[in-house]
């Protein structure tokens, strides 16, 4: 049997004594484009951070293609929330994208011309090549998000985790981003996206996980993206169901 891209078993994460994620079991097959949806405080970002080893869980195991995260680290790329970094940091768009290569370089080794070339290609892919030498605070919100996406592309991973890549971006950028995500899926990559806009879930994604501290449901959008699961997740009657 083919190994799932991501396998989470009995994951519990608590901040102090308050559980943020409670006994999560989750299997994400390889090659899906998956949205994680849920209300604020549902633990969506926390789930990603726990999978990536940024937050230490209270209990549970996580595996990426059958191995621990630290073994498979180089197969994983991560786009944190745009708001989590200081965009006044003295650096350029190109330099931020180059940071994507630091993981595969490992400690101490410096990025060279090979890494620079990869970074320039990634910038080109997100349509930001002409901004490569722009200081990052001089970019618009959408452009900053594209730089982040380019940084993930340069990681050349098998699994991509993105924390709200559509937050605060203009429509053009949103389309540009989703096209790249769909391209990644076409190339057989697995993409996990924390997503807020329920309306676009059926259009953008083929897999979905409903999360609200506990896992409500996970599976193909066509099968499980319905009023029932939305109501269970958000606690109010939801009527955005998939149009047949």
């Amino acid at each position: 049997m083919k190994l799932p891209a991501i396998q989470v078993d009995d994951l519990t994460v608590a901040y102090d004594y308050k559980p943020v994620l409670w006994d999560i079991d989750l299997t994400v097959p390889e090659g899906v484009l998956m949205a994680i949806v849920g209300p604020n405080g549902a633990g969506k970002s926390t789930l990603i951070k726990a999978i990536l080893g940024i937050i230490k869980p209270l209990a549970g195991t996580i595996s990426i293609f059958g191995g621990s995260y630290s073994e498979k680290r180089k197969m994983v790329a991560y786009v944190p929330q745009k708001g989590s970094v200081d965009w006044d940091f003295p650096t350029t768009a190109l330099d931020v994208v180059m940071m994507g290569t630091y993981g595969s370089l490992g400690w101490i080794k410096r990025p060279g011309s090979k890494e620079k070339k990869a970074a320039l290609e990634a910038l080109e892919k997100v349509g930001m090549l002409s901004f490569r030498n722009r200081q990052i605070s001089q970019l618009s919100g959408g452009q900053q998000q594209r730089v982040f996406l380019a940084r993930a592309l340069v990681q050349n991973a098998s699994v991509y985790f993105m924390d709200e890549p559509f937050q605060g971006v203009d429509a053009t950028t949103e389309i540009a981003i989703i096209n790249i995500l769909k391209e990644l899926r076409k190339a057989g990559k697995t993409v996990v996206v924390v997503h807020h806009d329920l309306q676009t879930v059926p259009e953008y994604f083929d897999w979905v996980t409903f999360l609200n501290v506990k896992k409500i449901a996970t599976g193909p959008v066509k099968e499980i993206f319905n009023d029932d699961n939305l109501t269970k997740t958000y606690g109010i009657n939801y009527k955005v169901a998939v149009k047949e």
Binding site: G53, P80, Y102, G103
Partner: peptide, 17 residues
């Protein structure tokens, strides 16, 4: 390089090991 990435983006830095 390590100082730079961990200062700019601690989350990515942690995820990269």
């Amino acid at each position: 390089k390590e100082l730079k990435v961990s200062t700019f983006d601690a989350g990515l830095s942690a995820a990269m090991g």
